[in-house]
Amino acid sequence: MSTSLPPEWASLLRQLQETIRAQSLGVSRTAGALPIPSLADWLAATTGNPEPVTEGFNPWSDDPGANAGIDPDKWRALSRYGQALSALQSAWLEIGLAALSESQPNSTTGHPTFREHYDQWTQTGERLFAERAATDSYGQLISELINAQVDLHLAYGIGEAPPPEDPQELKEALAEARAREKQLREDLAALKAQTATSSAPVKKRSPQKPAQRARSSAKAKPPAPKNARGGATAGKKKTAPARKKKTAS
């Protein structure tokens, strides 16, 4: 059984990919199918008309005059986007090349078909991609592309610049602090109510004058908090009763 890749494999695969892409793009207009995504779709996804943004721009041009006349902010944003895109494309290229070199079809016929090669290629590629995609470095490439795209759009006046102060993380921290304060106040009110209730029967059994009752109330010792929230017991959580994970029945 021969499993070596025919010499024309890579070029045939590339042509087939082009066919798939061209065909599915045609269908998308009539049957609602999604076009195969490309990196350019990142721009198209958010503007619907990305071409004017990058038209005539070549961030890798050796000609210093090639991008003359571009506003410095736009130039900076375009460069950043170009670098982010390039970094991601490099990662994809590495994965793609590794997938090509590692693809070895499992054929029982002794003559692997193109389809067997193709299936093995996608399987290997997906495995290699999954390994790479789960790394922090790849995550940073994706985040940077998104951040660079936002920068690019802002530089070209698409969208509005966000206010620099009061970022989401700070808002969340403030919301959490307010919620904790609110919870503590509620717990305190509940404790006060509980204290008042627990001292009431004593008053009934031993009637006193109003002034005396007020003093007794003030001296009454509040009951220990029943839950772990707030006060001296804050942060000490009760251990939940042990539960066995069961399958549904």
Partner: peptide
Amino acid sequence: SQWVRHVDLDRLVGCYGNVPGAMLNAL
């Protein structure tokens, strides 16, 4: 989770307002 860990959400939402569904789909 790894992919969106470093996205600047303040600028993203500030730029687009509502986040385009097609962008999420591509992701």
